[in-house]
């Protein structure tokens, strides 16, 4: 049952991605609507899959690589749907759905078996800490998606190549606004994730902070986004500069999430 839900989600995300890419190539109202229907359906199946796994496992299903990537993918789609509804920018899906699909497809490579929960993770903090962290990551992912489109659009505008693709992508201001909103959503979430992690560490390991690689890199990520937000609010780091920084921030975040777990050993290296 769980496996069926999982592979259905992958399949529906794949279809949604194809629809969104086709929409980017040749926009039409019906295609856009269907693409959104597909990604919404995929998202619902994905939620059902996650809940089903939660019930089966008896704990928050974010305890190994497979589950984490899957949850990350789901959060990305969730944040995307939230912003898509607000800004009515269908074309954002053409950039976000491939990410969601890839994350989920990669998660299938990792062992999917349910294992008894590591005693260190048996805590009510598991739910808060991981869910908040992943929604934070997802916000940064969507911010980076908007930033990538911004860079394309700004480049076309500077070079005065105002043909088809330029017409289809949203205005610079809208993209900058989405980027900013995502950051203002992602940053508090990341902050809460770090604080909740510290509190949990204190109860589990007896210390708030132990410079575990995950902790160190989370802090680096936090500083990058803090600097970016500060720059935006005070000295007008907007547009291109902000776009580049939020893409850099996204890669650092990705390293915090994946690199640390796969390459370094520490308290967080669940595999």
């Amino acid at each position: 049952m769980n496996a069926i839900l999982f592979y259905s989600t992958i399949a529906v995300y794949l279809l949604a991605m194809i629809a969104y890419l086709a929409y980017l190539a040749k926009p039409s109202e019906s295609l856009g609507k269907n693409a959104r229907r597909l990604i919404t359906a995929g998202f619902i199946i994905h939620i059902v899959f996650t809940l089903d796994r939660y019930i089966e496992a008896g704990h928050t299903p974010i305890t190994n690589m497979h589950e984490s990537l899957s949850f990350f993918s789901m959060s990305v789609v969730g944040v995307f749907l939230f912003f898509e509804r607000r800004f009515k920018i269908l074309v954002l899906g053409s950039f976000v759905t491939p990410v969601a699909f890839l994350l989920l497809a990669i998660s299938a490579i990792f062992p999917t078996a349910l294992k008894p929960l590591n005693p260190a993770l048996q805590s009510k903090w598991l739910l808060v800490h991981t869910v908040v962290a992943f929604f934070g990551y997802a916000s940064f992912a969507v911010a980076a998606g908007a930033a990538a489109i911004y860079l394309i659009q700004e480049n076309l505008l500077k070079k005065k190549r105002l043909g088809g693709i330029f017409q289809r992508l949203p205005s610079l201001n809208t993209l900058d606004e989405i980027n900013y909103r995502c950051l203002t959503l992602g940053f508090p979430l990341l902050t809460v994730a770090i604080i909740s992690g510290a509190i949990w560490a204190e109860t589990a390991w007896g210390t708030y902070w132990s410079w575990d690689p995950k902790e160190t890199w989370s802090l680096i990520t936090w500083f990058i986004y803090a600097a970016l937000l500060h720059g935006r609010l005070t000295t007008g780091w907007r547009g291109k500069k902000a776009a580049i920084l939020s893409i850099i921030g996204f890669f650092v975040m990705l390293f915090t999430f994946l690199g640390v777990n796969l390459l370094m050993s520490g308290l967080h290296s669940y595999k």
Binding site: Q153, L157, L162, F166, P170, S171, L172, N173, T174, E177
Partner: peptide, 9 residues
């Protein structure tokens, strides 16, 4: 139209 593509509103 170009202004809209930059400023939106």
């Amino acid at each position: 139209e170009l202004a809209r593509k930059i400023f939106n509103d």
